[in-house]
């Protein structure tokens, strides 16, 4: 397994875990009424920043755990080199993710124009960021597998 393929796989696992963490934490705080009132967006932003810090920790933990598991199960070391094919796959996956994010943001703006609240819009933007990142890693995995 090349480092690019490994990064895509660990990225997918990380994003799935981070998404569950965000939904669980933010929906819990929402139900507890923490996002009510005029300071709602500020409180929400602080919560998201804390969760971003958590996400970085999760990403490191997943990468280390995957490396240890992969090495112990297969007995082979992953190739840490990144070459022109990795960069080509990165570019193709990023292009797809960029389109998803762009059209999604356009959708959020339409939603706002139709009367959605800023709070809802910010949550949608956050979900879009996570979704496009997930899409990018999934597309990379598919491209690595299809073009092997």
């Amino acid at each position: 397994m090349s480092s690019g393929e490994r990064d895509a796989l660990t990225g997918l696992i990380t994003m799935a875990l981070v998404f569950v963490l965000f939904v669980w934490r933010l929906s819990g705080q929402h139900q507890a009424g923490l996002f009510d009132g005029p300071q709602a967006l500020q409180t929400w932003a602080r919560s998201v920043l804390i969760l971003v810090a958590w996400s970085i920790g999760i990403a490191i933990a997943v990468a280390v755990a995957f490396h240890i598991l992969y090495t112990s199960l297969t007995g082979e070391r992953t190739d840490d080199r990144r070459d022109e094919r990795d960069r080509d796959i990165d570019r193709r996956a990023l292009t797809g993710a960029w389109y998803l994010l762009s059209f999604g943001l356009l959708g959020v703006i339409v939603d706002l124009a139709l009367g959605a609240s800023a709070f809802r819009a910010m949550n949608l933007v956050l979900a879009l960021c996570a979704g496009s990142e997930f899409f990018k890693d999934a597309a990379k995995l598919v491209l690595y597998r299809r073009d092997a």
Binding site: S2, S3, D79, R81, D83, E84, R85, R146, D147, A148
Partner: peptide
């Protein structure tokens, strides 16, 4: 040539076309 084994495999199988340099 300074690439991964997977890239050589993909080139051999005609799934990836290398740059002129490679």
């Amino acid at each position: 040539v300074g690439v991964t084994r997977q890239t050589v495999l993909a080139i051999e199988n005609g799934k990836y076309f290398p740059t002129l340099e490679l």
